Computed example of a mutant assay.
Amino acid sequence: MVEGEMMWPSSLLPAVLYQLPESAFVTAMCVVSFASLAFAGLSELRGDHLAYSKFWHVVSGQQKRSVAAAGALLSGRTGMLVAYVPALVAAAVSFAVPGAVQGQRAQILAAALAVHFLRRVLEVLFIHRYSGNMPLNTALPISSSYLLITITMIYAQHLAIGLPEPPTDLLYVGVLLFTVGIAGNFYHHYLLSKLRKGGNDEKGYKIPKGGLFELVTCPHYLFEITGFFGFAMISPTIYALAMASGTAVYLVGRSFATKRWYKSKFEDFPVRIKLWCPISCDELGY
């Protein structure tokens, strides 16, 4: 049993997941992906933030770290392109690899992954506004992790070729969740971009307004989680489920950090805005 299975009733898993053949690679990736995401979420709770986060500069004395300690710096925009482009290329190229995406479910999964990362790249180029830099030694691990996630998700689905479909087929529910997730995520990213009308160099922060920002801290990450559970239903493998669960745990940790940050910066932060859902605006440079 891989670690991710412990989060779900054992009687439910066979009804919704493929019973994949043993794979040391997929099992290891399940454990590593879920554990690393959960650890990152706990780190956010403790105030230990990633080096591309706005919190890294302003919380817990981390603003005192030197540029030398952070490593070579990329612009925020370049750093995020480095993070996303390899995964986009991998998802697109999978259609050209013989046998990699056989069948409707595998093709929908690969297409959804390509759309997911294409949307991120387009947002980096045309929507997001950046006021900081990203260390190269942060951009490269993020890029590698997204690339591995994409490859592993497609490979785990590949292992299901010829296997019986799960008794409960959630493929089209997953497509719906993915569509809702990507649309809601984009819309709230767009609202965030409107906060900086003075251009990329404007560093003032504001309380986001509009959409679900009136109710929760950062709804764009609620939709991010929704999209990842869409992946898990499109490709009902234990790895996709472990990734969706790990992403949710990580973003919950960041929701605490974000609300704590907002309350420290804005005395008038509305009490009606709830913690759930996740969360932080800092991946976008906000």
Rank of each mutant, 00 (worst) to 15 (best):
F186L: 15
H49T: 09
K206G: 02
R260F: 09
F229C: 02
P135M: 05
F228H: 14
V26Q: 08
L37W: 11
G181N: 09
A15F: 10
Y172M: 07
W276R: 10
E202F: 08
V101R: 01
S280P: 02
M1T: 12
K259D: 07
T217Q: 01
T168M: 14
A112P: 03
N200W: 07
F269T: 01
V271M: 07
A110T: 03
F95M: 02
V101N: 03
V32C: 11
V26N: 07
E22C: 01
A240K: 10
L163G: 02
V175A: 05
A40M: 13
G210C: 13
G132P: 00
I151L: 15
L113W: 04
V93A: 14
N200I: 06
L17C: 11
A156H: 02
T217H: 00
A72L: 12
I142L: 15
P278A: 15
S60L: 05
A69C: 05
S66I: 00
P208C: 08
V32E: 00
Y262W: 11
L212H: 10
D48E: 10
V252T: 15
A38W: 09
S245Y: 10
W276T: 12
I149M: 15
L140K: 12
S60K: 15
A91S: 09
R254D: 07
F223I: 08
K64Y: 04
S94I: 01
Y262P: 02
G4I: 06
E224D: 15
D268Y: 00
A111M: 03
F266T: 04
L88K: 02
Y52S: 11
S36P: 12
